[in-house]
Computed example of a mutant assay.
Amino acid sequence: MHGFIPPDRFFPYLTWTDIQAMPDKENVVIIQPVGSIEQHGPHLPIIVDSAIASAVLGKALSKLNPTIPAYALPPLYYGKSNEHWHFPGTITLSAQTLLAVLTEMADSIYRSGFRKLVLMNAHGGQPQVMEIAARDIHQKYEDFLIFPLFTWRVPNIAKELLTLKELEYGIHAGDGETSLLLSILPEQVKMERAVAEYPQELPEDSLLSMEGKLPFAWVTRDLSQSGVMGDATVATKEKGDRLLESLGEGWVRVIEDVYQFRQPQVWMKS
């Protein structure tokens, strides 16, 4: 049941008495991997984002100093994926449903005495939902520290392995994700079906862009026929192994920082 997560770091393997007796619970780091079930082109399984979140977290927890208390919750496989819903197999929650699930999960974690929760999101279509959930949960419980983090934003070596074009436009089922899947779920990758397709008909010489500071709204079929945005044909397991290792190391640093973090409370000093 624990999948990529070390069994001694898998929260559901604890008993209620283990949790009741746990020391210093306010500084124990609880991590909720959040992914999606959505199309990733003709060559990748629809579990990509959920698999990446779980594998990166598992790598990090296996490297983490055993004196730092941190536990992974079961992955939340479904996410807000409506940009992909024209492609068969995509399963999507509404933003409202995902927000409710995150909030009610957090209520339970708080009730058990924990005060640090990481929302470890691996799907590019829902960071805003994580951020809204985090702010609202912290407002509800002022001593509950919530961290809405994106799996890929920790320090890693993607810039060393991917082209500049891929880094900017290869946002879905391209070189990076395909290489990672070749590392973590190689039997589920159909490289003979891999394609290279970058987003089409983007505005030129415009301040507006697909992502970034001034984005426009889009769904995947607006930009891609295959569902791929990037070059999957150049992916390799060697790149995936290196990416996984560096992402895992980046997440070790993040978990250490969360463990040490204390919420600023300037208002109490005035």
Rank of each mutant, 00 (worst) to 15 (best):
D175G: 13
I132F: 05
N65M: 02
L202E: 10
M210F: 02
L243H: 06
D18F: 08
E249H: 04
G240D: 11
A21V: 00
H138C: 09
K140G: 08
V219P: 00
S112L: 01
S54H: 04
V189I: 08
T178D: 13
E38F: 12
S224T: 14
P66H: 14
F216W: 14
G124I: 03
V254M: 15
L119W: 01
G58D: 07
I146V: 15
R221D: 08
G176K: 10
G79T: 01
P88Y: 12
G89H: 15
I146N: 04
E201D: 12
V34Y: 01
K239Q: 07
S62Q: 10
G58Y: 02
T67Y: 05
L202F: 14
M210W: 01
R153D: 13
L102Q: 03
Y13R: 06
T233Y: 04
I5C: 06
Q265Y: 14
P45V: 08
K116D: 00
L161H: 12
S36C: 07
N156Q: 06
K63L: 14
H84V: 11
G212Q: 03
R111G: 13
Q265M: 09
V118A: 13
L14N: 01
A173T: 09
S50Y: 06
A95H: 05
V48H: 09
P127G: 09
R242F: 05
K116F: 00
